[in-house]
Design a protein around this nucleic acid. Structure first.
Lengths: 332, 332
DNA sequence: TGTTAAGATGTTAACGTTAACATACACTTC
DNA sequence: GAAGTGTATGTTAACGTTAACATCTTAACA
């Protein structure tokens, strides 16, 4: 017990004893067993972050911001990668919860089995906050960029430039109905009385696995190729994220077409590469660092209060960053 | 005990009992406490990965590869960010070791205090493997790209193109003496009888904090600006990594100079952006996925054997990827 | 029939901490 | 000098598992 007091620096210990203990601690290379400590204390001062796509700079900036906010409060961060697979999601949730993290921040793509497991966790009072994804539960907070408005503005930007045949890349109308960016695209078209043409909405082909990482670039590439083979291809494209946009740009260049002269393109996220590629990519910037900070603060509040707090939702404004890839006004 | 047997699926349990238990497990939303389990079993089947700079695509590819190798063996992965600070390093090591991970893979920048703590861990039989960094210990494996050869070849490439005044960006000769990429640069110059000019070796200025993330781009920017203000600026630059190179490219453009015509540039890592920027960046590609896999295999071997294994070192070949930024042969 | 083996379940103790309580002493205060 | 306060240390039990061992039943076999 005296050792415990010395090591944790709490309670009364005489200077002489403290020094004796510290000497032995050093001699034996003693390190306190955190498992036993956590088991007894019933908390770990550790938070888990589950990332669906760690290759996306969006995720890493998020992670850095989460970590920064956590350490200021004396919490540790463990990051798990799920690669946006439902099985992997569950493994990540499982390993975090079995290590008794005090709370979990989830930034994966929504999927049925994963969501079910997550719901289960929440039911047993594990504090959870979701970032940038769908998850409705009365005790789970959500922090998200305004994907609807972002998608709307990206599309409106293209409409304002004179485009009428505008494609969406990265999801299908059927499977992506929940995708707010797609919905924003549809809304923008409709509010300008442009009919939505389902052939211009191009998700991944069945050949490509729905994987995470830079491979989403391939989805954009494949989807764009299909669009280009249409009898009447689009003059502009809005991609669900920057990697998809960059893949699409590759397909456009490969086809011998010019950006933005032949086809204009807008992405989403504003990853660092967007500003550096040629032509530079017009995109919608989402405030990743703010998202991470707010989500962490919400989670810490849940953890510290120990009570069930009812759902809060924070939707953060995005910013349209106009660069070269969308071009200037058309005069068809 | 019977519940334990049902949940872990080991030992004899009758079908009837198993079903009864499973029903109650479900009704009570019971989840096994991993802390207690690990405390008793004395292992966690979890591995920690400490990343110095999670914003670098190099790190994330590494992490994905490590995770993939681990899950095949039934292990979990917890990632910690250290932001390449010695205090943060220690916090990461501490939180991983106190959670009793079975082993740690370290991919941070070397620093004295962090290394001391790490050495301490190793002395208490925590299996450790280092990736792409300096760390000599008789029980720690090292997996690394061949930075020496990579630096040599990058520099030789510039020499072969006719350059004589070649700068190095990203470290100082004094503080970076351990930096193999810098050493490779020096060796290449010397083997071509080009004197090493210390003014052409440009690290970060004291104004810039030595931080991780995309801010390393700023280090390249600042360092290049200083080089450009020299009475006799270099005609070529080898940067310690791609972000630094990209920052340098920005400084060159800002000064109204052309790449590669006025100044040629070579980076290191081959991050995805390198191929996409304009002009595309000549760089040295390191086999990140292979590094992650080998390191993980080495670590698992240590974990499974439970014995002290003496140090092994794997140095992996890099590949020079020639793109636009280094230009073609000079005819001065 | 007795012997052996396999199947099923239960009991005990231990993993390494710390909260809570107990004890002891020195020193102040009225 | 009795009571109270602060300091220092010790004891006990509990956190939730599971390895190891013990017990009991049933089936199989010579």
């Amino acid at each position: 017990m005296t050792v415990s007091r010395v090591v944790s620096g709490e309670g009364y210990v005489s200077e002489i004893t403290r020094e004796k203990v510290l000497k032995v601690v050093k001699d034996l290379n003693y390190r306190r067993n955190g498992l036993a400590r956590s088991l007894k204390r019933q908390f770990t001062e550790t938070v888990g972050l589950v990332l669906g796509d760690i290759s996306n700079p969006y995720s890493t900036e998020l992670a850095r911001s989460v970590r920064k906010t956590l350490v200021d409060e004396g919490f540790n961060l463990f990051i798990c990668i799920s690669e946006n697979g439902s099985k992997e999601d569950i493994v990540a949730f499982e390993s975090l919860s079995s290590h008794s993290v005090d709370g979990i921040i989830v930034a994966t793509r929504s999927n049925e089995a994963g969501d079910r497991y997550l719901r289960n966790l929440v039911e047993t009072n594990v504090p959870v906050v979701a970032i940038g994804r769908d998850f409705r539960h009365k005790n789970v907070d959500l922090v998200s960029p305004d994907n609807l408005k972002g998608g709307f503005e990206a599309t409106r930007h293209l409409i304002d430039l004179g485009h009428r045949r505008i494609a969406f890349i990265g999801a299908n109308l059927s499977s992506g109905s929940h995708l707010k960016r797609l919905q924003g695209y549809v809304n923008a078209l409709e509010s300008h009385s442009i009919p939505v043409d389902e052939r211009l909405i191009s998700g991944r082909s069945d050949e490509l696995p729905d994987v995470a990482g830079y491979s989403t670039e391939d989805i954009g590439f494949e989807a764009m190729k299909r669009l280009l083979s249409l009898p009447n291809p689009p003059t502009a494209v809005f991609a669900r994220n920057d990697f998809t946009a960059i893949g699409a740009m590759r397909a456009i260049s490969d086809a011998g077409l010019r950006i933005p002269d032949d086809i204009a393109i807008v992405g989403f996220d504003d990853i660092p590469m967007a500003a550096r590629i040629s032509p530079s990519l017009t995109t919608v910037r989402q405030p990743m660092r703010v998202e991470g900070q707010i989500a962490t603060e919400m989670l810490l509040e849940r953890i510290k209060s120990g009570k069930r707090i009812s759902r809060r939702e924070r939707v953060l404004d995005c910013e349209l960053i106009v660069r070269e890839s969308s071009g200037s006004k058309r005069t068809n």
